[in-house]
C-alpha cells in the first residue's frame, strides 16, 4: 500500500525565485523506513515539511504538483487535520515541548487532549510510550529539568502517543551528544518492527546504512539518487552532490586503486562488510603467494 505519494512537486518559499524543491516524484510504501540525505540547502527540511502536510497550508509559498499522505491531499487538509495522522520531530528538543504542562506525563498527554481523546483512555497510552522511550521513571518530573537527550525522547514520546502511521524526523539527533543520539536511534529502530512509515534526515550515515530500507539523496532541490543504502551510499556521484562517504566506503574506494580491495566486491557501507572485503584480499594474496 502506498502511504505517501508525491507527483510533480515544485515548491517556492515566499519571496524566493529559486525553488526549494524541484519536480519531485516519490512514492513511499507503508512501513518503509526512508532516509533523506543531502548537503545543506539541498531541500531536506523542506521535504520534511511537505511530507508532514505543513507545506502548503501553513506556509505562504507557491506549490506545484500534488502530495497525498494516507490518501489525504495536503492541499485540501489543514495541519490540524493531519495531527495524529503524521508525526514530526524536529532538531531542537526545547522547542518541541509545550511547557504548558507540569510533568512529563502531562506533557505527553497534551497532544491527546488536543485531539479530544477520552481521559480514561489516556493513562494506558501514555505509560506505554513512556516505557518505550525509557522515560517511565521520570514521569513526574518537570520537563524543564530534563537533559537534552531526555527532552528529545520526550518530544518523540509526545508524537508516538498519537500513534501516527507516518513519522517524519528532521535531524532528530543534531543537538544531542553520542549517548543521547544512541538512545533516540534505539527508539526509532523499534518503530521499524511496527508498521510505521518513517522518513528521516540524518547526518549519521553509519546508522542509516544499518537501519534504512531506502535512501534518497537530494541535490539543489531535486532527487538525484534513490535506492537501497548500499546503492546510494557507495555511488560514485555522491561526492559531486556534496555528500560525504562513510569512512568505510571511502577507505575501500581508495584502496581499490592500489588493489587492496577485491575488484569484484561491492564497496562496503558497514564495518562487517569492510572487514570481510579487506580480509579477502589478504587471504587471496596469501593463497596466491
Amino acid at each position: 500500500m502506498v502511504m505517501i505519494e508525491v507527483t510533480g512537486l515544485t515548491y517556492y518559499y515566499p519571496l524566493s525565485h529559486t525553488p526549494a524543491l524541484k519536480e519531485i516524484n516519490l512514492q513511499i510504501e507503508a512501513g518503509q523506513f526512508v532516509a533523506v540525505i543531502g548537503a545543506n540547502g539541498a531541500g531536506k527540511s523542506t521535504l520534511c515539511l511537505v511530507l508532514s502536510g505543513l507545506i502548503p497550508t501553513l506556509f505562504n509559498g507557491r506549490m506545484l504538483g500534488n502530495v497525498t499522505i494516507n490518501s489525504m491531499n495536503t492541499r485540501n487538509h489543514t495541519p490540524g487535520e493531519f495531527a495524529g495522522r503524521v508525526g514530526l520531530v524536529l532538531q531542537n528538543p526545547t522547542n518541541q515541548i509545550s511547557e504548558m504542562r507540569y510533568t512529563v506525563f502531562e506533557e505527553v498527554a497534551f497532544g491527546l487532549e488536543n485531539l479530544g481523546v477520552s481521559p480514561s483512555e489516556m493513562p494506558e497510552r501514555i505509560e506505554h510510550v513512556l516505557r518505550l522511550t525509557g522515560l517511565i521513571d521520570l514521569r513526574d518530573r518537570s520537563p524543564f529539568t530534563l537533559s537534552g537527550g531526555q527532552r528529545q525522547r520526550l518530544a518523540l514520546a509526545s508524537m508516538l502517543v498519537l500513534d501516527p502511521p507516518v513519522l517524519v524526523l528532521d535531524e532528530p539527533t543534531a543537538m544531542l551528544d553520542p549517548q543521547g543520539s544512541r538512545e533516540v536511534f534505539h527508539i526509532i529502530q523499534t518503530l521499524t518492527t511496527k508498521n510505521t512509515t518513517v522518513v528521516i534526515t540524518e547526518h549519521n550515515l553509519e546508522w542509516i546504512a544499518q537501519t534504512a530500507d531506502r535512501v534518497i539523496a537530494l541535490n539543489k532541490g531535486s532527487i538525484v539518487l534513490d535506492g537501497n543504502p548500499e546503492f546510494v551510499l557507495t555511488s560514485p556521484l555522491l561526492e559531486t552532490f556534496g555528500i560525504d562517504y562513510l569512512r568505510y566506503t571511502q577507505a575501500a574506494r581508495e584502496s581499490q586503486i592500489y588493489g587492496l580491495w577485491p575488484s569484484q566486491t561491492p564497496l562496503p557501507v558497514t564495518l562487517e562488510q569492510s572487514v570481510l572485503g579487506f580480509n579477502r584480499v589478504s587471504s587471496i594474496k596469501k593463497g596466491g603467494g
Binding site: 569512512r247 584502496s255 592500489y258 564495518l271 579487506f278 580480509n279
Partner: peptide
Amino acid sequence: QLIRLSQELNHLDLALNVEQFIKERE
C-alpha cells in the same frame, strides 16, 4: 570508523585518516 576498522583488522598502526589506513594495508 577508521579506528574501529583498524582494530577489527588487527592493525598495529591505528589509522587516523584514509591515507594512513592504506599505508598500513600495503
